[in-house]
């Protein structure tokens, strides 16, 4: 019984973790290249969920259509913010860009509220479910899992196989060196910021495949915190690390519930959060730059 529950929770956690990981890659890419912590990260995830919501509810299309659309929206927004704000702050103290991303996040939230109102939105996209011996999986969750993996592979291939991807990695490793080698660092900044935001907005769409309710202009905060922790778990600046960090996070968050529920007199669900953050601290103590982090 217990084992059955544990494996059920771990399966769900694996899927959720893959989505978390996917949702953190954008944050990590931006940090790796520009050393900017995007405090407005959650707002972009929220934007993605609303793209998915609008496509499904207003246009009546399958939310899969929303995936490329969200990437384009995010890419465009990313370029826009880069040229008007972030790009002007590359030489300013690090904290300034942090404040700028905070304000950008706020702007996105408020504009969304202005357009969609403060209503809790949601939709139900049902394409059937698969019953496993230990849990039930709606097919949309399986889609989410597969798409997340595909995105990770695509990003990996881009970073490894293409010219621009290699240039980007060079900037991550050594900015000055890359400049000497003739890489246009500023262009790489713009590219990474736009792609990072694009990936983040896209991940919002994929998130709705797992949880399609509770959409609200202010829903992003919880995801920002999670993304931060996941990014650090995997190692800042390493998009792949982010993915593994996400999987670990999802497994721990869901898996520890079953074990904690054996302890009487406590609230296991709240304590799962404690456990995840505790593990984060332990990992940081052992490896101060995360699991796959480079110094």
């Amino acid at each position: 019984m217990l084992l059955q529950q544990l494996s059920g929770n771990l399966t769900q956690g694996l899927i959720l973790g893959a989505i978390y990981g996917m949702a953190t890659m954008g944050l990590n890419l931006i940090f790796g290249v520009m050393k900017i912590v995007n405090v407005g990260h959650g707002a972009f995830i929220m934007l993605g969920t609303f793209v998915s919501f609008a496509i499904f509810t207003y246009l009546g299309l399958t939310p899969i259509v929303a995936i490329p659309l969200a990437f384009i929206v995010g890419f465009a927004l990313g370029s826009l913010f880069f040229y008007f704000i972030i790009g002007k702050l590359t030489n300013a103290p690090e904290l300034n860009s942090l404040l700028a991303t905070f304000a950008i996040g706020m702007l996105i939230e408020e504009v969304t509220k202005f357009i969609f109102g403060s209503e809790w939105r949601g939709f139900t996209w049902d394409v059937g479910r698969v019953t496993l011996p230990f849990t039930v999986l709606p097919i949309t969750k399986i889609y989410a899992f597969i798409i997340s993996i595909l995105v990770v592979i695509a990003l990996y291939l881009w970073l490894r196989m293409t010219r621009s991807g290699t240039a980007l990695r060079a900037v991550v490793e050594d900015k000055e060196g890359a400049r000497v080698c003739g890489i246009n660092v500023d262009r790489m900044y713009a590219l990474s910021f736009s792609i990072g935001i694009g990936l983040t907005v896209m991940s919002g769409v994929i998130l709705t495949f797992f949880i399609s309710v509770g959409l609200n202009p202010y829903m992003g905060g919880a995801y920002t915190l999670r993304a931060f922790v996941i990014a650090v778990l995997g190692g800042l600046g390493s998009p792949l690390g982010a993915f593994f960090g996400g999987v670990i996070f999802g497994l721990v968050e869901n898996g520890s519930y079953t074990l904690l529920s054996l302890i009487p007199g406590i609230e296991p669900f709240s304590l799962t959060r404690f456990v995840t953050f505790f593990i984060l601290l332990i990992i940081l103590l052992v490896r101060p730059t995360g699991l796959l982090g480079v110094k």
Binding site: L225, E267, L280
Partner: peptide, 22 residues
């Protein structure tokens, strides 16, 4: 950033410890 986010861990961990352990 590692320090910054570790402190988030402390804060959130504390909150959920208070809630979870009552």
């Amino acid at each position: 950033a590692y320090f910054a986010i570790a402190t988030i861990g402390v804060n959130e961990g504390f909150r959920y410890l208070i809630e979870g352990a009552k």
